[in-house]
């Protein structure tokens, strides 16, 4: 038996042997290291270890019946390291047994908790390679995670700096603010048209968001077609658009453009089998009406004019006039505005 133990100490340093009464009579060097300063030789195996699977094993004869099966165990006292094991009857027919143990999946924690080194594992044991892999993969994952974080941050920053509305390809509000700031600086004349779709919410609600998105894309196409290259078209809200007409524009021309825009937008837009019907309300402010150009004020005025169009039954345009500010509906809830938020 002693020869066997010497052999097993090298091959299976986490083994132990039991005598015929189920008491431990030899412990491999690594297993001994798990209980430093404690003598488990002489203790009853089932009092040191809890057999978690199979359960209800209380006697040595039960244990012997499990020979060759996979055992799940753990120490009864802390640290309650989980172990896997297998029992074989000791040679010689004396009724004893050899149990070899290993850490199983808890190996990373166990190695740390018990400060084990490479010398504690058999040379053929793959534990060291596994620990190497765990550590190497963790380091590689960490590097990848950081890269992903940086890329994510860069993507968000790029989106924040973007000037394009991704759904329609038009400029967005940010871009429009930049264009407005530039024309204000240059001091040239221009007109601002605030356009809000009518009945768009109904399309979204009844035909779904896909139809709504399709309508917005068609609207964008029409707005671009009906304007010149030097004009700016932006989607500034869910169904709100802002058009900037560069250079001097007469009221007459702006009226023509407004009527043509509304007429084209009122043509049914086909989406799948459905026909989507919308219209548009327009408010216009012209820079020549402002002795001291104030972009914010002009935007506000275009919005007031739009509001007037909505109030006048939609599907029409209104030029800003100071009298609109005293209209009886000012301050009331805007009809049909603000229903759709930018998705």
């Amino acid at each position: 038996m002693e020869q066997l133990c010497n052999l097993l100490d090298v091959l299976c340093p986490m083994h132990l042997t039991l005598d015929r009464t189920g008491h431990i009579d030899h412990v491999g060097p690594t297993l001994a290291k798990l209980r430093p300063g404690e003598v488990i030789v002489g203790e009853r195996f089932l009092e040191v270890f809890e057999l978690r699977r199979p359960q209800a094993v209380t006697r040595m004869s039960d244990l012997m019946a499990l020979a060759g099966n996979k055992l799940h165990l753990r120490f009864r006292d802390a640290p309650r390291t989980g172990l896997k094991g297998v029992l074989v009857p000791a040679p010689g027919g004396g009724g004893g047994a050899v149990i070899d143990l290993s850490f199983g999946i808890s190996v990373v924690d166990a190695v740390r908790d018990h400060a084990l080194t490479a010398a504690d594992f058999a040379h053929t044991d793959l534990t060291i390679e596994m620990l190497y892999l765990v550590e190497a993969k963790s380091a590689a994952m960490e590097a990848s995670r950081k890269l992903n974080q940086r890329l994510q941050g860069a993507k968000i920053a790029a989106e924040e700096q973007a000037f394009t509305d991704t759904l329609t390809g038009l400029k967005n509000r940010r871009a429009m603010d930049h264009v407005l700031a530039r024309v204000a600086e240059n001091g040239g004349r221009f007109a601002l048209m605030h356009l809000d779709l009518d009945f768009f919410k109904a399309v979204n609600d009844t035909q779904g968001h896909a139809a709504g998105d399709h309508v917005l894309q068609e609207v964008a196409r029409i707005l671009v077609e009906e304007t010149r290259r030097e004009d700016t078209v932006a989607r500034i809200g869910g169904d709100e658009f802002m058009l900037l007409f560069a250079d001097r524009m007469t009221r007459r021309r702006l009226e023509d453009i407004s009527r043509r825009l509304i007429a084209r937008l009122e043509r049914p837009i086909v989406h799948g089998e459905a026909e989507c019907r919308i219209s548009a309300s327009i408010g216009i402010a012209m820079s020549e009406d402002y002795p001291d150009l104030d972009i914010a004020r002009m935007q506000e005025d275009a919005d007031i004019a739009l509001y007037a169009s909505k109030h006048n039954g939609r599907a029409c345009h209104t030029f800003y006039d100071i009298s609109l500010r005293n209209a009886p509906y000012v301050g009331a809830a805007p009809p049909g505005r603000g229903e759709v938020t930018l998705r």
Partner: peptide, 11 residues
Amino acid sequence: TFELGMARAEG
């Protein structure tokens, strides 16, 4: 010194 089980603390 080299302890095998530093993976988690350093990872």
